[in-house]
Write a protein that binds this DNA or RNA. Structure first.
Length: 288
DNA sequence: GGTACGTGAACCTCGAGGGC
DNA sequence: GCCCTCGAGGTTCACGTACC
């Protein structure tokens, strides 16, 4: 068997596969070759004792990503840039930049793993011993003292204001037909008419926070507002029905502005102060 | 002491902008 | 045109406080 592995020989080179498929293939292929699983290779005691490799991921308190980052950091001797996130979508469904990020991480990971399996240069017993010594003397690091967090119970009035705001007719439209059942924590089921929200949660929250700012009211934190909106059952408007009307109104507004500027010019406004360039841009945009 | 729930932080994804 | 980095948007999670 060759001492070095090539990228194209490895299942990771098939970029059309999802990361989960990669993990499955990598795990199975490693197990076939070595008689053990990749999972067991990533256990915290991998360098200190071979008797502990039988433990599995589920028993570890760390998340899968943390364990992975930990393993890669150890294997790369601190050279590995930690994986920031795990893809939950299939690779082909991700945006290009996101896909490139995961591919980059996969390549880097693969190189490190290959280097560990078939070290061609640089890795010596002395360096491994030095790494062990460093880990035993320096430990896992210092925890930063967490800041004091204070909690304030929201008053019913505050919650009422928020619900009233998000239930305004411009944000919530009741559908003329159908209904749904809200199940309360007390077990009581309430029948409410179906409603459609015209704005996504984050926009609603931004609008409410601006409103609070104008009225010098302290709003609940974002997460609480998200929870409240989620609890108030409503569908999200996804249809583009009415979009033509908005565009039509917008174009009409631009025409009106042009007429106003033109009139101001005839009344003696200096030509240099008339922003013709901006209207030219709008004209070009509207023709496309 | 148990639990409900408010909070900050983390997660996942995307887009802009720049280098080659 | 491809690749990469960085930062922000939108959402969810887990911790820890306050109340019963």
């Amino acid at each position: 068997m060759s001492r070095s592995l090539r990228w194209m020989d490895h299942p990771l080179h098939d970029l059309s596969k999802s990361t989960k498929e990669w993990q499955r293939e990598l795990t199975s292929s490693k197990a076939e070759r070595s008689g053990t699983s990749l999972t067991s290779m990533f256990q915290p005691d991998m360098f200190s004792s071979q008797t502990t490799v039988a433990s599995n991921w589920s028993k570890d308190e760390r998340s899968q990503k943390d364990t992975f980052n930990w393993a890669m950091e150890v294997m790369s001797h601190g050279q590995y840039s930690p994986l920031k996130s795990q893809a939950s979508l299939n690779l082909e469904d991700l945006q290009h930049s996101t896909k490139m990020y995961y591919i980059r991480q996969a390549r880097l990971t693969f190189e490190i793993v290959c280097e560990s399996i078939a070290p061609s240069q640089g890795l010596t017993i002395y360096k491994i011993d030095a790494a062990r010594k460093y880990a035993s003397t320096h430990g896992p690091g210092q925890y930063v003292s967490p800041p004091k967090i204070t909690h304030l119970r929201l008053s019913k009035q505050k919650i009422h204001y928020f619900i009233e705001f998000i239930s305004a007719p411009c944000y919530l439209q009741v559908v003329g037909f159908g209904s749904r059942h809200l199940k309360l924590s007390s077990g009581l089921a309430v029948k409410v008419p179906k409603a459609i929200r015209t704005m996504i949660a984050s926009r609603l929250i931004t609008a409410y926070n601006n409103c609070c700012k104008d009225n010098s009211i302290l709003p609940p934190c974002r997460a609480t507002q998200y929870k409240t909106i989620k609890a108030c059952a409503a569908s999200q408007l996804k249809s583009l029905h009415g979009l033509d009307n908005y565009i039509s109104d917008g174009m009409e507004s631009i025409d009106t502005l042009k007429k106003v500027v033109s009139n101001l010019g005839t009344k003696g406004l200096q030509t240099s102060k008339v922003p013709y360039s901006k209207f030219r841009h709008l004209e070009i945009t509207s023709e496309e």
